[in-house]
Lab assay of single mutants.
Amino acid sequence: TTYKLIANGKTLKGETTTEAVDAETAERVFKEYAKKNGVDGEWTYDDATKTFTVTE
């Protein structure tokens, strides 16, 4: 399944996707990606669109 991340960070803005077996796995991947890019904010997830959003 393809999951999408929308990053609304102070230093990183944009979108990326990952293939994962479930939302929990995708969330781990995206949180690691955000951490590597210095983004720390509020996370939301929309199951209907398989989209995570992080906003600083």
Score class of each variant (00 low, 15 high):
residue 48 A to L: 12
residue 3 Y to N: 02
residue 49 T to K: 06
residue 41 G to C: 02
residue 33 Y to N: 03
residue 37 N to M: 15
residue 18 T to D: 02
residue 12 L to R: 07
residue 24 E to V: 11
residue 15 E to K: 07
residue 40 D to Q: 13
residue 20 A to K: 02
residue 22 D to L: 04
residue 5 L to G: 01
residue 12 L to A: 06
residue 39 V to T: 04
residue 13 K to C: 15
residue 1 T to R: 10
residue 55 T to P: 01
residue 50 K to C: 05
residue 39 V to Q: 05
residue 34 A to K: 01
residue 2 T to C: 13
residue 54 V to K: 01
residue 36 K to N: 12
residue 49 T to S: 10
residue 30 F to P: 00
residue 3 Y to T: 02
residue 38 G to L: 06
residue 54 V to R: 01
residue 55 T to V: 09
residue 14 G to Y: 15
residue 27 E to A: 11
residue 45 Y to R: 01
residue 43 W to Q: 01
residue 23 A to E: 07
residue 17 T to W: 14
residue 7 A to E: 04
residue 32 E to L: 09
residue 33 Y to R: 03
residue 21 V to L: 12
residue 29 V to E: 07
residue 26 A to P: 00
residue 32 E to K: 06
residue 15 E to R: 07
residue 3 Y to L: 01
residue 14 G to Q: 13
residue 50 K to T: 03
residue 10 K to L: 14
residue 52 F to W: 06
residue 36 K to L: 13
residue 5 L to M: 08
residue 56 E to Q: 10
residue 45 Y to Q: 00
residue 38 G to F: 06
residue 53 T to N: 04
residue 11 T to R: 10
residue 47 D to F: 07
residue 53 T to F: 10
residue 53 T to S: 06
residue 7 A to S: 11
residue 16 T to M: 14
residue 23 A to H: 11
residue 50 K to Y: 07
residue 5 L to P: 02
residue 49 T to P: 01
residue 2 T to F: 09
residue 51 T to H: 02
residue 16 T to E: 05
residue 8 N to L: 14
residue 15 E to N: 07
residue 56 E to R: 04
residue 56 E to I: 09
residue 46 D to V: 05
residue 31 K to Y: 05
residue 32 E to F: 05
residue 55 T to Q: 09
residue 28 R to Y: 06
residue 55 T to K: 07
residue 44 T to R: 08
residue 52 F to H: 01
residue 35 K to F: 10
residue 48 A to C: 08
residue 2 T to K: 12
residue 21 V to C: 13
residue 53 T to E: 05
residue 52 F to M: 01
residue 16 T to N: 05
residue 2 T to N: 06
residue 38 G to Q: 06
residue 4 K to Q: 05
residue 17 T to V: 10
residue 50 K to G: 04
residue 35 K to Q: 11
residue 17 T to F: 14
residue 5 L to I: 03
residue 45 Y to N: 00
residue 28 R to W: 07
residue 10 K to C: 14
residue 7 A to C: 15
residue 29 V to W: 14
residue 50 K to R: 12
residue 24 E to L: 12
residue 40 D to P: 03
residue 50 K to P: 00
residue 50 K to L: 07
residue 56 E to H: 07
residue 53 T to K: 06
residue 52 F to C: 00
residue 49 T to E: 05
residue 16 T to G: 04
residue 52 F to L: 01
residue 7 A to K: 04
residue 32 E to T: 07
residue 17 T to I: 10
residue 44 T to P: 00
residue 51 T to E: 04
residue 18 T to Q: 05
residue 10 K to V: 13
residue 23 A to Y: 14
residue 20 A to M: 03
residue 41 G to P: 02
residue 43 W to A: 00
residue 56 E to Y: 08
residue 31 K to T: 04
residue 43 W to H: 00
residue 8 N to E: 10
residue 34 A to W: 08
residue 55 T to M: 08
residue 6 I to P: 01
residue 11 T to I: 12
residue 26 A to K: 00
residue 5 L to K: 01
residue 22 D to C: 05
residue 32 E to G: 05
residue 13 K to R: 12
residue 54 V to N: 01
residue 41 G to N: 01
residue 44 T to K: 08
residue 4 K to S: 05
residue 55 T to W: 10
residue 52 F to S: 00
residue 54 V to D: 01
residue 19 E to K: 12
residue 11 T to C: 15
residue 40 D to K: 13
residue 3 Y to Q: 02
residue 22 D to G: 04
residue 8 N to T: 11
residue 22 D to R: 03
residue 27 E to H: 10
residue 47 D to N: 09
residue 23 A to F: 14
residue 53 T to V: 07
residue 23 A to P: 11
residue 7 A to L: 15
residue 43 W to L: 03
residue 15 E to T: 13
residue 29 V to A: 08
residue 15 E to Y: 13
residue 19 E to W: 15
residue 15 E to A: 09
residue 23 A to G: 04
residue 16 T to P: 04
residue 10 K to Q: 11
residue 37 N to C: 14
residue 6 I to V: 11
residue 56 E to S: 08
residue 9 G to R: 04
residue 40 D to G: 07
residue 22 D to W: 03
residue 39 V to K: 02
residue 17 T to C: 11
residue 54 V to L: 11
residue 6 I to K: 07
residue 4 K to P: 02
residue 36 K to I: 12
residue 16 T to H: 14
residue 31 K to M: 09
residue 29 V to G: 03
residue 33 Y to H: 04
residue 6 I to C: 07
residue 40 D to C: 12
residue 43 W to G: 00
residue 28 R to C: 07
residue 26 A to D: 00
residue 47 D to L: 06
residue 19 E to C: 14
residue 18 T to E: 04
residue 8 N to K: 12
residue 40 D to F: 14
residue 22 D to K: 03
residue 16 T to L: 15
residue 56 E to M: 08
residue 13 K to N: 10
residue 8 N to C: 14
residue 13 K to W: 13
residue 1 T to K: 12
residue 20 A to R: 02
residue 41 G to W: 06
residue 20 A to N: 03
residue 25 T to W: 07
residue 54 V to I: 10
residue 13 K to T: 11
residue 56 E to F: 08
residue 12 L to S: 07
residue 31 K to D: 02
residue 49 T to H: 05
residue 6 I to D: 03
residue 11 T to Q: 10
residue 4 K to D: 02
residue 38 G to T: 03
